[in-house]
Design a protein around this nucleic acid. Structure first.
Lengths: 106, 106
DNA sequence: TTGACATGTGACCTTTTGGTCACCTAACTT
DNA sequence: AAGTTAGGTGACCAAAAGGTCACATGTCAA
């Protein structure tokens, strides 16, 4: 499977995105800790984490019998760069910021 | 289905990403024109374009019996903003640029 | 060293997704 | 008006993905 294909397939599942959100909020979590937040058995969570790791979206470090998980933002940035060139980026960010501002103050 | 779910699901398929690449290179293409580039029947391509449109990644404009397709970069930017904060962005872009430079000059 | 804890593996089943086809409507051309 | 061109719909089948379980390994603590 191609490298970028793994990334996009990994991002396609809502549970996996939630796991990324959890790691974005606080990194270095274990499987057991993540399991307690996602309404699914440990096996399901482990499978999802494996997919994320093979996609390079999550990197891990072993510490004794625990495995710590960290979010890797690089593949996300590459998605961005694929369809948003430097010139367009200025317009898009302005647009997104405007949209957010309008939503915050109705 | 949630809004962001549609976007990520849409991006999960390689043919749909190719369609986005084609529209990124040159916008305003018709179904028939896109069909000629993707080794698939018209029906398959039409289905993929529908998924992209419902996700908001592609916007369309009718012109007579033709339907013109355009890439919308906003959802892509939102993916970026979800997991890369302003502070991290500086480090990540630097890292990505360095990686690209190293790949270009071996 | 015994038991509890943290994680890994392969089989299994159900649901979702990708692709094609027969058939259809709408618009341009002559 | 008739033929051609651009696109849309719903049914269908094969392949892939999501989730759970029985079973297994390695690590810590008393």
């Amino acid at each position: 499977m191609a490298d970028d294909d793994r990334v996009f397939k990994a991002l396609a599942d809502p549970t996996r995105r939630l796991l990324l959100d959890l790691l974005f909020a606080r990194e270095g979590r274990t499987l057991t800790e993540l399991e307690s937040e996602v309404a699914m058995t440990r096996f399901g969570v482990a499978k999802h984490l494996k997919v994320l790791e093979e996609a390079g979206l999550v990197v891990t470090r072993r510490s004794g019998r625990e495995k710590l998980h960290f979010l890797n933002p690089v593949p996300i940035r590459l998605i961005h760069d694929r369809w948003i060139d430097k010139y367009t980026e200025r317009h898009v960010t302005a647009l997104v910021d405007l949209k957010k501002a309008l939503e915050d103050e109705p």
